[in-house]
Deep mutational scan, measured.
Amino acid sequence: MAAGGDHGSPDSYRSPLASRYASPEMCFVFSDRYKFRTWRQLWLWLAEAEQTLGLPITDEQIQEMKSNLENIDFKMAAEEEKRLRHDVMAHVHTFGHCCPKAAGIIHLGATSCYVGDNTDLIILRNALDLLLPKLARVISRLADFAKERASLPTLGFTHFQPAQLTTVGKRCCLWIQDLCMDLQNLKRVRDDLRFRGVKGTTGTQASFLQLFEGDDHKVEQLDKMVTEKAGFKRAFIITGQTYTRKVDIEVLSVLASLGASVHKICTDIRLLANLKEMEEPFEKQQIGSSAMPYKRNPMRSERCCSLARHLMTLVMDPLQTASVQWFERTLDDSANRRICLAEAFLTADTILNTLQNISEGLVVYPKVIERRIRQELPFMATENIIMAMVKAGGSRQDCHEKIRVLSQQAASVVKQEGGDNDLIERIQVDAYFSPIHSQLDHLLDPSSFTGRASQQVQRFLEEEVYPLLKPYESVMKVKAELCL
């Protein structure tokens, strides 16, 4: 049975990233139509530049190519590739079939990587351009969430054990800070992308030097003109047959890092959902379990974690691919890159769409948070109580021993009897502590235990987050809708 299948058929496997999760716009960027249309555009740009620099290419040939950029006979191309065992030459023939007058000058002087690699770089750039505003929107939604809850005390956790208090907004800023680093890295790697350009079979530009009869300047002009037509500021000066596969490492490393950030955020949300302090959106008709109707599973956060793990592992592909590119190139890269580049971007696209949807509907339960604080705060307040007693004339050592005994009794009630923490009640009825009984409410005010959390939130948002989001103001209103 021949390899390949009808990918629109229910009898043929289709990647869930495309069929179930990723956005239509990201799927289109990695589609065959987008790819092969870009090949034709690159052939047109090459012909236009070659004509401008004096090669015998007519206006009629150029116009014929322009008129057929979208006229792609995919069936013919597939048949040609089956016959020739070469995808680029299959599309040269297919393009030439609908451009008979231009057929002889299509791909003039070029090698397969002229269309293959340059198209990949265009796709990487455009895919990054799709991700950047999506990530900015996630940051914006979380920034709104953090600002609104900047002063809401909550129990902090280290080692997932109760620690000092923080605020809900401050905790959210930990998430935002990681995503801001990801946004900066995505922008950097996007701006650092260079075009492969017009380089020939081993990167020496020998074929173009021959076409222009040894004119170095025209060869350099050709490279520059096509690079500018493709919208790049610069091209690699040095290439082998391909652009260095280190570029793929750079791009997928940034995406993998984004995956790590999203995994951490969504894990926190899942843990908070278990504590009943916070939940992701839950639709009115949504079913959490087929057997347990009360369940409210954090399905979206779980999906993000599941896909983020996949995204983090994909960076190993370009690392290994770059390491086995012998001399000017081997074909070890080809099949692998067809999979890992598309999957990385479709996965990143999915987790950003999902995280935006989550961040637009996060639900906080202040009463649950308050109750958990009441359970733990008495123990945390013991040092403040000791200091207040010393100020009232008591002995630190005597007070410490009193607190120690009462704390152990209260802990026994919590752990052995399943009761509430009654340390404060014990202190309130103990005559030894009568000098500070009137101060206990103040000493137990949760806001006095959150330090500068709310001020940190305000400063972080104003100095770091809002300036970073400013270039994306025009796209901030787009909502994230999930079908599944």
Rank of each mutant, 00 (worst) to 15 (best):
L331P: 02
L482K: 13
Q164K: 00
P281K: 14
I62M: 06
Y432W: 07
H93E: 09
S261E: 04
V390L: 03
N126L: 06
T321S: 06
A235R: 07
T313D: 00
D268V: 01
A410S: 12
R372W: 03
I106E: 03
E463H: 15
T313R: 05
E79L: 09
L152W: 08
F208T: 06
E81D: 15
E360A: 15
Q428V: 09
F74R: 10
A322P: 02
I62G: 03
A381P: 00
D441Y: 15
Q325I: 10
V198S: 08
E280T: 02
L209A: 05
I122R: 02
A78C: 13
Q63N: 09
D59R: 06
R20I: 04
E81W: 01
R309I: 06
D317G: 08
E328W: 00
Q458I: 14
G288K: 01
L135R: 01
S438R: 05
C98A: 12
L252V: 11
S112T: 00
Q458L: 14
K233Q: 05
V405A: 12
A256P: 07
G5Y: 11
L271P: 01
C113R: 03
T111N: 07
I424M: 13
D445N: 13
Q397C: 06
R338G: 01
I122V: 11
A392Q: 09
P24E: 14
L165K: 07
G394C: 10
A381C: 04
Q325G: 13
R83F: 09
T347G: 11
K264E: 06
Q356L: 15
C172G: 11
L275Q: 06
S19M: 02
I106K: 05
P293L: 02
I72S: 05
G394W: 08
L69W: 05
M380S: 02
W39A: 14
V251I: 10
E464D: 15
S253I: 08
F345M: 10
I139N: 15
D333E: 04
R37C: 09
C180Q: 06
Q164V: 12
V429L: 14
E283S: 11
F236H: 08
A410H: 07
T52L: 03
T330C: 15
L183Y: 10
K82P: 10
L314G: 13
C304D: 03
L331K: 02
D317E: 04
I176L: 10
A47L: 03
A163C: 01
G96A: 09
D398G: 09
R296A: 07
M278F: 10
T201W: 01
Q409E: 11
D398S: 11
L255M: 11
C266W: 03
K134D: 14
E80R: 12
I436K: 03
D215L: 08
Q241S: 00
D430L: 03
V478P: 15
H86A: 03
L275T: 09
K229Q: 07
A102S: 10
G259R: 02
M316S: 10
L461A: 02
A388F: 05
G197H: 00
R245Y: 01
D87H: 10
R270S: 03
S447K: 11
K246P: 06
V429E: 13
W43C: 02
C173V: 09
R309W: 01
S474M: 08
E464F: 06
F28D: 06
S412W: 09
I106C: 07
D182L: 03
E228V: 05
Y466F: 12
S140Y: 15
F74M: 15
L252D: 10
R85Q: 05
F345G: 08
R190N: 04
L258P: 00
E60I: 08
C483W: 13
F433H: 02
H93L: 08
S359D: 12
T267H: 07
L314P: 14
K264P: 02
S306I: 01
L440D: 01
A2R: 12
F36C: 09
L108M: 11
S257W: 09
C266I: 09
P298N: 01
A392I: 09
V457L: 11
L307I: 08
M476L: 14
G419L: 13
P446V: 06
I269T: 14
E79F: 15
Q455E: 14
P100T: 13
E383P: 05
H86Q: 10
M316Y: 04
I427N: 07
G200E: 03
E360I: 11
C304T: 08
V457A: 10
Q285K: 06
L222Y: 00
A77D: 15
V198I: 13
A49G: 12
C340E: 00
F208L: 12
L108F: 05
S9A: 13
F212G: 07
E79N: 08
G156F: 02
T347A: 15
G231W: 07
E302N: 00
I238T: 03
L174H: 08
F236E: 09
A335Y: 05
